[in-house]
Design a binder for these strands. Sequence first.
DNA 1: AACAATTACGGCATCGATGCCGGCATCGAT
DNA 2: ATCGATGCCGGCATCGATGCCGTAATTGTT
Lengths: 337, 337
Amino acid sequence: MFKPTTIKDIAKALNLSTSTVSRALRGGYEISEETKKIVLEYAEKVNFKRNPIALSLKERRSYSIGVIVCEVANQFFSQAIDGIESVAYSKGYHVIISQTHDSYEREVINVEHLANRSVDGLLVSLSAETKDYSHLEKLHDQGLPIVFFDRILNSMNTHKVSSNNFKGAFEATEFLISKGCKRIAHLANASQLSITAERQKGYEEALRQHHIPIDKELIKYCKHGGRDQIEVEIAVREFLSHDNPPDAIFVASDRLSTGCLSTMKKYATHHHDILVAGFSNSELVELLNPSLSYIRQPAFEMGEKAAEMLISIIESKYPIEEFESIMLDTTLHPNGA
Amino acid sequence: MFKPTTIKDIAKALNLSTSTVSRALRGGYEISEETKKIVLEYAEKVNFKRNPIALSLKERRSYSIGVIVCEVANQFFSQAIDGIESVAYSKGYHVIISQTHDSYEREVINVEHLANRSVDGLLVSLSAETKDYSHLEKLHDQGLPIVFFDRILNSMNTHKVSSNNFKGAFEATEFLISKGCKRIAHLANASQLSITAERQKGYEEALRQHHIPIDKELIKYCKHGGRDQIEVEIAVREFLSHDNPPDAIFVASDRLSTGCLSTMKKYATHHHDILVAGFSNSELVELLNPSLSYIRQPAFEMGEKAAEMLISIIESKYPIEEFESIMLDTTLHPNGA
DNA sequence: AACAATTACGGCATCGATGCCGGCATCGAT
DNA sequence: ATCGATGCCGGCATCGATGCCGTAATTGTT
């Protein structure tokens, strides 16, 4: 069996009390230099590591933060996680990652699991399916620090980090217009997500400013966030088979963008006539065919910011009253014909 | 502050002892139906959740398993993690993911962190840089269950899950030969990795069987696993600028495959003359240009198997003597001209 | 020399949940 | 009526580390 050395083992071996050993190892004040040296050397020798579980129990904190994302395979989130980890590690926190796969039930289970395991706080990007937020609100009311990033919950009073979705969508749509497109479809994520509304507004505003009518038949939502490829296929094929088909598609997220391209390659004989622009943080975008103009979010920085904010709440001595909402800029990368 | 209800709170509220409450909530034997009902109802009412930290301390186990991978952004690993999670969740275990980014130091830090946090076992895929295995051997000797997957450590006596790298590499190379390629380069991972040796053997055996000489100048290793894109670029550009350049490249891993294509697109004017085949579990492969013939590993199944094996060790009442090595088949997906 | 002050360490309770053991009460049996 | 059996529950130690408090021994002060 796996039995690490404890402070008690050291105390017994050196004929000291556990208190003395503990203080020799930590603060060290009130302990003679001589004893300290003996203890430190012996601890080193037997490869002593203090048990963080015992500490968590006593101190009511674990020095770990939980992260809730839909999936780590999505490059936006894996980049954000890298940002989160870089900040967390430098401040002595461990990161526990949990995937919802855009399922509401998984989100509830994972959130409760992490809360029970005494994470000191939660970084949350909502699942596409989530419409009921009571599992999060309950914990927030109990005092658990929560910071949202990307897919935020506006109604909760806490820190939030997002990118400028309106502007990103606006620029992408305007780019398509500048390329001469007149009928621009919009493939959107689940309608209850914050990012969906913001990006749709950007899309519609760009059309409006360029006097292009908004056609509701050219806007389709994927309510499971494209968790199943088939969901995306159906939507895109409806666009393609429209009486008056679009000459461009603006896609609202990473997974949908690639799903859209796959479908086009599979079914559209003349897919080079349709321009596609979408949100994507994939590192492979430049290699794609059909090509994709893409809006990139500063995922790493968003992760950093979110982690910094969460840790500042965790370590704050007084309850926070004033919460911040940070918005970072996206960048447009034009591509293709 | 965040203070969940404890068993003690319930005991006080109902004027019972903590032992009684505990037994009422759990086994329930020796407790009258009446008391049980009262306790259960009250616990439900105040949303009681037992504290897993306290349990971990007492029971010396956490019902969580640690996973060490180089990076979750790599689709092979994110798929493997999905497999791990599906098994772990169904057996009541939580999964803690840790990324090494193919750095040896990060691997050591993360392994020790997880061991300290009392994971019940570890699923490990080695970092590309790792040559010294003492951090893992020490824990294994202390009795911590460890199962390797993909990038395994042959010298350690434990369960292992891998794919048939030899066969996969052999088939890919043979495919390139069948397309008429005569000078086939090999872009490999760090030389100390198990997968590197196995794949190189498959590559060389295919050449041998088809009477193609093995040219050591056409084999290049990326000792950081392509962590920096520049590492891949240098290797590929050396291939391209060779006096007698290759007409095909067989690439040994996911990240290297995409890095190779990027470099070719960037620097090779006639890159369509060079066929590329490589290991990749990316879902975007079919959309890539230049196109990539790819060998796919059953990542999800590998994760499942590895998790099942680890949990079987953890839950075994007697020390395991006989360890298994499982090997799963890959599939070749031809593409391009 | 007598007392205060400081040094250096041990004892003990604590965090939350569990389980052994011990005890009280009620019931049935002889 | 007395004893054993059983049902039902509380007390207490335990897991590892910490920190308050108590205390012995040594040093310093007048």
